[in-house]
Simulated scan of single mutants.
Amino acid sequence: MGISRKGLNACAAIFAIMGFAGAGWAQSVAGAEEYTRACASCHGLTGHGDGPLAEYMSIPVPDVTQIRARNNGVFPMLEVIHLVDGRSGLRGHGGPMPIWGDRFEAAVASEMGDVGTEIAVRGRVLALATYLEAIQQ
């Protein structure tokens, strides 16, 4: 009995996440790539809320380099993960921010099966949140 493609993909996702956990450099690269793809159009390449779509938003786009400063010097990792993921029921910025957990899930669901998809989504969200922590000023 062999391992299915979904099983192999789930295993690959697990090893990728484990690699991210042990390799800060790889995680920051993955997080920077996620940020560029998912966030920079509104928050700007440097995170200051000045992306090309920011002027079209109905509410001001926050400077994500100031999250720690707005939280008394502490980066609220779990809160950031919940805002990015969106699947916890919390919504970033009062509503207009996309629910990246759902979008990430839709991007990989057909390839990885339920477990692999969940691992991949959580890894992408964690990489992004870790990157946001790294760019705090």
Rank of each mutant, 00 (worst) to 15 (best):
H43V: 05
H43M: 04
G44M: 11
G44E: 12
G44N: 11
G44W: 01
G47K: 03
G47S: 08
H48D: 14
H48R: 11
P52R: 10
L53K: 06
A54R: 03
E55A: 01
E55Y: 06
E55G: 13
E55P: 01
M57F: 10
I59M: 13
I59V: 15
P60W: 08
P60E: 05
V61W: 00
V61F: 11
V61G: 12
P62M: 01
D63N: 14
T65Q: 04
T65C: 12
T65I: 04
Q66S: 14
Q66K: 15
Q66Y: 00
I67W: 08
R68S: 14
R68V: 02
A69G: 07
A69Y: 04
R70D: 13
N72I: 06
G73F: 08
G73D: 08
V74I: 13
V74D: 10
P76I: 04
P76V: 01
L78M: 15
E79S: 15
E79P: 04
V80H: 13
I81F: 15
I81M: 09
I81E: 14
H82V: 02
H82L: 09
H82D: 09
L83H: 15
L83Y: 14
V84D: 02
D85H: 02
D85T: 06
D85M: 03
R87T: 11
R87M: 14
R87I: 02
S88P: 10
S88K: 05
L90D: 14
L90K: 11
G92W: 03
H93P: 00
H93D: 09
G95N: 05
P96L: 02
M97C: 06
M97K: 00
P98Q: 06
P98I: 03
I99W: 12
G101M: 01
D102Q: 07
R103N: 14
E105I: 02
V108N: 07
V108L: 03
S110G: 15
S110R: 00
M112L: 14
D114A: 10
V115N: 08
V115T: 13
G116Y: 08
I119S: 01
I119E: 00
A120V: 02
A120C: 04
V121M: 01
R122T: 03
R122N: 11
G123F: 02
R124G: 03
R124C: 11
V125Y: 10
V125T: 03
L126Y: 12
L126N: 06
A127K: 09
A127Y: 02
A129N: 05
T130M: 13
L132H: 01
L132V: 12
E133R: 13
E133Y: 07
